[in-house]
Each structure stands twice: as C-alpha cells, then as structure tokens.
Design a binder for these strands. Structure first.
Lengths: 251, 251
DNA sequence: CTTTGTATGATTGTCAACAATATTCTTGAC
DNA sequence: GTCAAGAATATTGTTGACAATCATACAAAG
C-alpha cells in the first residue's frame, strides 16, 4: 500500500509537477462542472478518499482548494457541499466578470503583438458564426464560446487576471449555458464577438472593453431571466438536503 | 493533551464560528502583513505547528488557504515561502484592482440607500484631509485609507467583489504604502477621495467609477516608480534564500 | 400528538508516526 | 581549492487511529 502512492493512486500519465492534492482538485472540479454532483449535494471526505484510494488528509486539503475556487462550500463541523448559488449570487459574479472581461479585452486590443494570435482568434469566431446559425447546436456553441474564452485567457499577459476570470467562469458555467439557450441570444452573442474582433484588429481598446462588458451583462440578464422563470433549479431550500445525503451515501 | 484542543490552543476569546484552521490563517496573514516574515522567507510546517501548539495537519490546510490568498507560495515537495512579487506582478494586481474598485464605487454611488452611510464616509474623508496636510504622518494616512477602503467594502452589497478586493488589497498592502509616501501623492489622493464623495452624493456612478479607476492607476504608477528606483526591496534573486532559511530556523 | 431527552451511528477535527523526497554536510579524488 | 558522490539530516507527503461533534432514531413524559 505504501509503495509510491503519489504515482499509483492517480492516472500515471499526469505530470508530477502538480501535487496529488491539486490533481484531485482538478478531477473533482471536473466532476462538479460536468454535473456529476448537483448543487447542494454533500461531499463526504471518506467517500472521496475511498474513490481516489487516498486517506482523508489530502482530501481535506483538496476540499479547501475547491472552496477557495467557489465550487464547494465548507461549513465548520458540518462538511462540504457543492455550492448552490442564489440568483443574487449569480448576478454578483456576472457583475464582477463584466469589468474584468473588459480589462482583458482592452489589454488584448492594445497588445502590440496581437498580430501573432489574431488569425487564430478569427478562425474560432468564424467557427462560432457557423454554429450560431444552426438552430439546434446550443451545446456545441457553448463549447466553442468556452474554447474562445480559454484562448483569450492564454493570450492575455496578466496571469492573475487570467486565473480570476477562469475561476469566475467556472463558477457560472452552468448559468452561462442558460444564457445562450435561445438562437436569438446566440445571434446577439456572435455579433458581439465579431465587433470585438474588429476592435482588436484596429487596436481600439475602448471599444473592445465596452463590448466585452456589455456581452457579460447580456449573458447575465439572459441567465437571470431564465432562472427567475424556472426557479426549480435554484430554489430548493430544504435546509438539510436529506434526500441528497442519501443519494451520496448509496453511491 | 486531548481535552478540548480547539479552545485551548488559541486565544479563548475568539469566536468558535471560525474553525481552528481559519483562525490560524488569520493570525498568520497578520504576521505576514505586519512584516514579521519578509518576502521570500521560507515557512516550515513544523515551526508553525509548534508555535500554535497543533499538529502539522491543520497547518497544512492553513497554508493552502494562505496560498489561495496569494500571501504565500507553495511549491510541491519544497514547501511554503512568503510571496515575493516582481514589479510586473505588482503592476498586474493594481491593473485588476482598478476596474474592480471602479465597479465598487459605481455600485456605491448608485446605492439607493447611500444616505445611511454617507455621513460616516464624509467623516472618514474629513479625517483623511487632516492627515494629508501633515507632512510626517504617512503611516497614519495609510492606516486611514485602509480604514476607508474597509468601510467601503462593508457598504458594498456584492459580497464576492468585497472579498476579491480585500484579497488583492492585502497582496499589495506594502506597495500601496509606498505609493503614498510623499506629501504630494497624499494631496493627489485626498483630492480623489473628495471628488469621490461628491460623485457618490450626486449618485453619479460614471464619475465615481472613473475616479476610482484613476486613483488605483495613480497608486500603481507611484508604487512602481519607487520600486524601480529602489530595486533592493524586490530584486533579491538568490534562488535558495539560504540566509532567510537560517533566520527562520534560529527563531 | 407533540415534545424532550437519550442513545447510537456517522462525520469531521486532530494527532503522532512513518514514508518519500529534498537539502545539507562530509568525504574523497583530482 | 573545486567538484562529485554518498551519507546524514531536515522537510514534506501520507496514513490510520482516536477524539469531538453532529445528526438521526427512538422512547418516555407531558
């Protein structure tokens, strides 16, 4: 049991530059984002430890990381549960994303070396335009927007900005999808992106910033509108989450 | 040893709503911010554990928290050291603070209930004006600005924004002080604050936002200017920090 | 029928010991 | 004197066990 647990208890092909705890955090956050756990569901240390064939120590550190990332909520002497955001909290996060996306896109528009990555950007936006026309490809459109945002993060020089934006995007992933569920919204979205490319090409930071800001506010409003009309997915207020406890246990 | 370690190993008067780990994180970050540890200094788990009279388990969780807060840097299989920021990194953080402070002050200016806290705000700004005139009270001026920023955080409704801003402010605390070291800069600073109060009183979100943004950029430029002319405090590039290791061990 | 107290199990919080790795020190050759 | 290899030490990574706390179920009293 004790021979080289770091390489054995997880996928061997993953790089060892990341610690065991960080690898677990990555895989756990994937599970949460893919909907394997649902909001409000409790997460038990021993369960996770068994699944990863690790003791509870590293699991606890891992949960601290996920808490700081906003994906789970830790209550002292009660444990962890997948973060369940109220409509107000979703709005809060989008409100923060707006000016930060504005900053990012301004920096990109004012990047002296933007010629290096502009072709790649145009390619993705073109791909996006095709998907936007199709009426039934909401998932693929969302995936492409995610890819686009990821690439923009790669090209931006401010590493901390990149990390904060990635964290906020993760926290609102499921709600961003909501905002792009109608073809009309996707049309609006693609127009924003096209104008963004223009602004970046011209080096117009002001325009790029305001477009980015507006784009986030539009997703915010669309998401909130849907959430308010379908309160089932965000208003389950049973205080103790008993059913979900049982689900977690029988798994 | 085992009788109620949670209340015994730390100050008894602290509230128990916070876990032991969070209490330690608070006290450790205080130490870092007060300069008890200097940038680049290594932090050993066992040393901290001994000082707080706990085992290394909680200390490790605590260090994970501080890492996410940017106060320490964790390297796998090497340990923790107090984060040492390059000039570029300091600039990065200020660049993020600018639009977020802008958002905060816009939200404050557009708060329908701002009448409730405006008098208190005016009082602090008045206090600041007095300190700005005095030529030798840099420390007290900095402290007052910190109090002001803290209060603004209390009044803003977006909890996440408040937390992110607080974290970024902590990371740049020692550099913000640098930016306010000259009386001229303090004069510039107080003028910004006075215009801010006006804008908030009028409910002028646009102006409040742009003033806040400019205020951060001014501190950024002042801090960077000083850092570039006094590179001693940020360019100690000895890779292993040997001397500081020794200091830490003999303590 | 509701409520209160109690017992029981489940879960988190902490610890001390061990394993694995990194660092420092010593020794020796050149 | 400088460098390299190996030993010794220091430090981090992980574990299993125990203590403290929480939640639930159940019984008894009102």
């Amino acid at each position: 049991m004790t021979f080289s647990p770091r390489t054995l208890s997880l996928k061997d092909n993953e790089p060892l530059t990341r610690s065991l705890v960080e690898q677990m955090a990555l895989r756990l956050s994937d599970r949460i984002l893919e909907g394997h756990y649902h909001p409000g569901q409790r997460i038990f240390e021993q369960t996770i430890a068994d699944e990863f064939q690790v003791s509870r120590g590293p699991v606890r550190e891992c949960l601290r990381l996920l808490e700081k990332d906003g994906l789970i909520t830790l209550v002292a002497r009660h444990g962890a549960q997948v973060t369940k955001l109220s409509i107000e909290e979703v709005k809060e996060i989008f409100d923060i994303r707006a000016p930060l996306n504005g900053l990012r896109d301004r920096m990109l528009a004012e990047d002296p070396q933007r010629e290096l990555w502009l072709p790649e950007l145009k390619k993705i936006v073109a791909e996006l335009s095709l998907l936007a026309c199709s009426t039934q490809s909401a998932d693929r459109y969302v995936a492409c927007v995610a890819k686009l945002n990821h690439q923009l993060g790669v090209w931006v020089s401010n590493q901390r900005l990149k990390n904060i934006l990635a964290s906020l995007a993760r926290q609102t992933r499921r709600y961003s999808q909501l905002g792009l569920s109608t073809p009309a919204r996707r049309q609006q979205s693609i127009q924003h992106w096209q104008k963004m490319v223009e602004a970046i090409e011209k080096g117009d930071g002001d325009t790029a910033q305001s477009i980015a800001c507006q784009r986030v506010y539009d997703s915010r409003d669309a998401a909130i509108h849907i959430l308010q009309n379908q309160p089932a997915s965000a208003s389950n207020d049973s205080p103790t989450e008993i059913k979900q406890d049982l689900e977690a246990r029988e798994a």
